[in-house]
């Protein structure tokens, strides 16, 4: 993790809904100026964590601090500094986008205007009930950015957007980061996380199972090795073990999935005359799935 100041500090957060445990000691930190990806499958506790951060629901134990302020005790003060994009739309269907912008601006005590309206090509005069999924999401992003909040909490910010708009959102988030802002975003979209996030936490069954920088996640060192030998090679089994699995084999070749150090496998392979050899990094998705095993 980065040694910079902490923007979001979640410590031992616990939340139960009856007998169901939604959060079981969730702990992670988000550095100031980072774009932080919060990953996990449905029901893992992502939205519950976000709701605790926003003080929509109250934790049974632990603490959540944003910019040094307690998310529950200092909720009002804190929300002046937070922009929020929910997973589900929270609009008045009979209002136009502009009416929403004016209402939220009034509540936040900021100007009811945003450069994002033009940047995202959003028509603020249409009533929300007539907006497409993508346009509703654009409105949510515009509302979240009103007043240039220091911290953005976004539940799946690119949901429903086409690839072009997704890229625009990435640019907007990256620009926010470049101005010193912090972004906490949940996502299912691993390429998206890999593309824009600085660090990531993976939540499973209410607990963080991995928290690291994107760089170190990539360096989790899962490789694919595709090798073709000059002569028939039948003794495949000698390559297996110590994190090495055979994905596919033939008379002249073998495909391996190597977790951890590559050297041992490469030494074993090069005992035979090699005709062709290809080593590739596993995708973030594969690494993610590896964590989930």
């Amino acid at each position: 993790m980065s040694s910079r100041a902490v923007a979001i500090e979640v410590k031992e957060l616990r939340k139960h809904f009856g007998s169901f445990t939604a959060l079981e000691g969730t702990t992670f930190n988000v550095s100031k100026g980072d774009i932080f990806g919060f990953l996990g499958p449905n029901g893992a506790g992502k939205t519950t964590t976000i709701r605790c951060l926003m003080d929509f629901i109250r934790a049974d134990g632990g603490s959540a601090k944003i910019l040094g302020l307690d998310s529950e005790q200092d909720s009002v003060q804190l929300k002046r500094k937070i922009g929020y994009l929910p997973a589900s739309e929270q609009y008045y269907e009979n209002w136009s986008g502009q009416e929403h912008i004016e209402f939220v601006a009034k509540l936040r005590g900021v100007k009811p205007s945003s450069p994002l309206i033009k940047q995202l090509g959003f028509n603020p005069n249409s009533k929300v009930k007539h907006l497409s999924t993508g346009n509703r999401q654009k409105l949510g992003i515009i509302l979240a950015f009103l007043g240039n909040p220091e911290v953005l909490i976004m539940d799946e910010p690119t949901r429903g957007l086409d690839p072009i708009l997704q890229n625009q959102v990435y640019e907007i988030l990256t620009e926010h980061k470049s101005k010193g802002g912090t972004v906490f975003m949940s996502s299912h979209n691993l390429p998206e996380v890999a593309k824009i996030c600085d660090s990531v936490a993976v939540i499973r069954e209410g607990a963080i199972v991995a928290e690291e920088t994107i760089e170190s996640l990539r360096n989790k060192s899962v490789h694919h090795i595709d090798v073709t030998f000059e002569k028939p090679f039948v003794d495949h089994k000698t390559l297996e073990g110590n994190g090495v699995k055979i994905a596919h084999s033939s008379k002249y070749g073998v495909s391996l999935r190597v977790k951890g150090d590559l050297n041992r496998t490469l030494r074993l392979i090069t005992k035979q005359p090699v005709k062709d050899l290809e080593v590739t990094h596993a995708s973030l998705e594969e690494i993610f799935l590896e964590i989930y095993k």
Partner: peptide
């Protein structure tokens, strides 16, 4: 129920 309460709750008001 309509989830529009989210607009209010995410604003800096108690």
């Amino acid at each position: 129920e309509k989830t529009s309460m989210g607009l209010w709750l995410s604003a800096p008001i108690s």
